[in-house]
Design a protein around this nucleic acid. Structure first.
Ligand SMILES: [Mn+2]
Ligand SMILES: [Mn+2]
Ligand SMILES: [Zn+2]
Ligand SMILES: [Zn+2]
Lengths: 144, 144
DNA sequence: TGACAAATGCAACTATGTTGCATAATGTCA
DNA sequence: TGACATTATGCAACATAGTTGCATTTGTCA
């Protein structure tokens, strides 16, 4: 979630024409409190203006390839999309509820990952680390 | 990968009849050096004896629900399956190559995750943490 | 053996994501 | 501005991953 990002500038910084569709997709991702699936992004954008499913997938691919958006495993069958870490948005882990499927952002720094061991012993190039905590969310605990 | 597991006992410990299909699926998972997709498991089991695709999915669901096998995000569209952590198999992170898609197990302990911050601040029940490191593997680096 | 339950197979289906190709919108430059 | 190229979008078809309903087979046990 971000109140400080200028999405038009972000797109231009990534070398992408700031078309209306791209702006809408990026705004939906940026204004949501947790990462969204392509399906949810499509549905949300569609509430204000028509957009094709394939266009959404293509825009998501572009945004990820330019580093504006990160693509994560949602814990289920679909991938989810959130703003990529930047100066306003520190990287952070996510929590996936195995009961209701909800996904939430956890505090940046709430979970420390020490990469030094891998960086020493691993022969490839490390580009990112995804941490997903799984369990039962508070709401589902109450219901049970 | 495991040379020490008695798969038949594992199944029985999980309250599952040790049918041939279940044994074969569990052996394929247990003898591979990295987690496998349902597609790969099906193909491997099929080399020695016929088995239906749906049966494989159902067995995988059972093995996961009984805690014998863990289901992970493979970094792409499909989920992958590996032996669940136990006394012979400490939990460990995985590496996903964005170029060739290969998945490898990393050393247990090569990447330390400190859960204490979350355990203090998070209201739900934490059941597991999945860590996936993404990047370019050694082979793909050489090729480039 | 016969009754019952559990496991498997098969067809059809859903969900998610991709490709090829046509059209529409936009940018470039004379 | 008008011609032309480039880029973005839409649409249909396809591909892949996973699920469901229901019939058949296999196993358990009295
Ligand atoms: Mn987040
Ligand atoms: Mn592993
Ligand atoms: Zn929940
Ligand atoms: Zn590779």
């Amino acid at each position: 979630m971000c109140g400080q990002c200028n999405y038009r500038s972000l797109l231009q910084a990534g070398g992408l024409e700031p078309t209306l569709n791209r702006l809408r997709v990026l705004e939906v991702i940026g204004s949501n409190s947790s990462p969204l699936s392509a399906h949810d992004i499509l549905a949300t954008v569609n509430r204000t203006a028509g957009i094709n499913r394939v266009t959404v997938y293509r825009i998501l691919g572009l945004l990820v390839s330019k580093g504006l958006v990160e693509r994560l495993s949602g814990g289920g069958r679909s991938l989810v999309y959130g703003l990529a870490p930047n100066e306003h948005h520190p990287a952070h882990p996510h929590f996936h509820c195995r009961s209701c499927g909800a996904l939430q952002c956890l505090q940046p720094g709430s979970l420390k990952v020490d990469l030094r061991g891998i960086e020493r012993s691993f022969a490839g190039e490390i580009q990112g680390v995804e941490v997903r905590v799984d369990g039962i969310c508070r709401n589902c605990l109450k219901r049970a």
